[in-house]
Structure formats: structure tokens, C-alpha cells
Design a protein around this nucleic acid. Sequence first.
DNA 1: GCCAACGTTGGC
DNA 2: GCCAACGTTGGC
Length: 135
Amino acid sequence: MRYWLLKSEPFKYGWDDLIAEKEGTWDGVRNHRAKNNLAAMEVGDQAFFYHSREGLEIVGICEVSVAGITDPTDPEGKWAAVKVKPKTKLPHPVTLKQIKAEPKLADCELVRLSRLSVAEIKPDEWSVICATAGI
DNA sequence: GCCAACGTTGGC
DNA sequence: GCCAACGTTGGC
């Protein structure tokens, strides 16, 4: 079981959209590192849902329901995608400010590579964020 | 709205 | 194969 963080701009596709759809396809990723992360995901992996540009906070947890599919929006079929289902809405969203203020999270991919849209979260980082979120 | 970080493109 | 120019992302 591995942990991830999925970034999305809430005005394009937010947590509420995922709830409404019940299952969302994570496609349109055009960054190699993010693609590698997508390709490494397995069914059952957990992922934080993070709102970028607006909100700047982790709002929920979703679970990979379908792994290893090719991006349906890519005509050449070179890019990867997964499907995710919403699992838990965080009782207390964890803001980027809180993440940056926590020394244990100082070198997670989210902080280090701020432009990466699909980041890996280490198990201990996952626990720290869950604790902060009140889970 | 600005700017830093990063990726991509294209001239050489 | 190098690097400058440009575009995009995302935090502030």
C-alpha cells in the first residue's frame, strides 16, 4: 500500500466534483515525474486530494479504484491515468501553511516540488498529516 | 497580478 | 548537445 497526493484546482475539478461523480478519472497529466507516480499506483492505494491555486489545503482522502490505464485524453496513448473514488472528507483540512510549518513534512514532494501535480507521500508523512487533520 | 521554478522548444 | 527564449504552474 502506498500513499499519494493529487492536486487539482477546485474551480476546474474539486473535491465536490469527485463526490458528485462518485468516481473520477485522473487524466491530463503531462509531466514525466507525475506520470511515473501515476503509473506506480495500485488499486487500494490512498491519496490525499489537494486544492491548488485556491484553498491551498488537503480536503479529503480518495482511493485508487482502477490503476494503470492510459490517459483517454492523449491521442498517442503515451500518458498514464488512474481512477479514484472519494473515501473520507477531512474533519479539519490541512493547509499548505500547516504542512510547511511541520518540520517532519519539510521534504515531502509537495513542498520540494511545488509544481508536481501527482506527488508521493511517505507513510510517516501520511500519519503526520492524518493526525493534523483530526483522523 | 507578480514572480520563481520548471519543462519544452528551437537556433546554433 | 548546449543554452536562451518562451510557456505554464502555482504560491504569494
